[in-house]
Design a protein around this nucleic acid. Structure first.
Lengths: 124, 124
DNA sequence: TTGACATTTAGTCAAATAGCTAAATATAAG
DNA sequence: CTTATATTTAGCTATTTGACTAAATGTCAA
């Protein structure tokens, strides 16, 4: 019950659903990429990721200064993700996210982080 | 997305999950029976029922002064309820609820409501 | 070791929410 | 019509939660 409630609470926030959608499209993403997608502060993203991870929905992998997150499908909850997948497929908002995400994923991580701290890097 | 989020939010409250569990055991229950089960005020139950109904998870049927509620399984979300069912089956709390519920269901509705408004009806 | 930097934690604030009581609504019965 | 009563709505309070800023942490590179 507590576990189930944790999962439901973790999933009942728009931004966290967007994170789940992004990670069901991209296998793994680092915190800075998610920050860029959601357009909120890194601290806020960190908090959301922690809630999802705590609910058992994410695992993470550290690679140098970056931390990559992946979706985990908790025992018996596959069906829920199938249902979510259908929602994502029919959502304009998630579709828009996907396009942004494709751009983000194509940018070098270094450059992305640089631009996040305001160093607009002189496109001639 | 909005619909999905509505369902998830509706389900991410302990008392509302208990209502769903009760209605997956009993087909239909009136507000006063749910009030008795949850041990909160009728107004609070009314609010929870309205949230569930708004999310498309409940339908209701009026019969005189009583209103009976039933579960509805929104298009495509059957799997979610299967998952919830498994949770309920393994939950001590829901099991305890079930026992209380069986007692409540066996009491005459009239008598239940009478006792709810404090008229402890003289058990010799 | 020092500095840079991605992420997390701590602390604050405003908005959302679950609970209550009391008043309003709608229905049944006298 | 009037009274009784099941449910809902309105108004309130306390708690939770999502967002922010600033400080702390942990990692890489010089």
């Amino acid at each position: 019950m507590k576990t189930t409630l944790g999962i439901l609470k973790a999933l009942s926030d728009r931004n966290r659903l967007r994170i789940v959608a992004a990670l069901s499209r991209y296998e793994e993403l680092c915190a800075c990429q998610i920050t860029e997608l959601l357009q909120v502060t890194g601290a806020t993203v960190s908090r959301h990721l922690s809630i999802l991870q705590h609910a058992g929905l994410l695992s993470s992998r550290k690679e140098g200064r970056w931390i990559y997150y992946q979706l985990v499908y908790p025992e018996g909850s596959d069906a829920v993700f199938t249902w979510l997948g259908a929602t994502f497929a029919g959502s304009m908002e998630i579709q828009a996210d996907s396009e942004v995400l494709d751009k983000i994923a194509s940018i070098d991580r270094e450059e992305l982080c640089r631009s996040q701290r305001g160093e607009i890097c002189c496109p001639k």
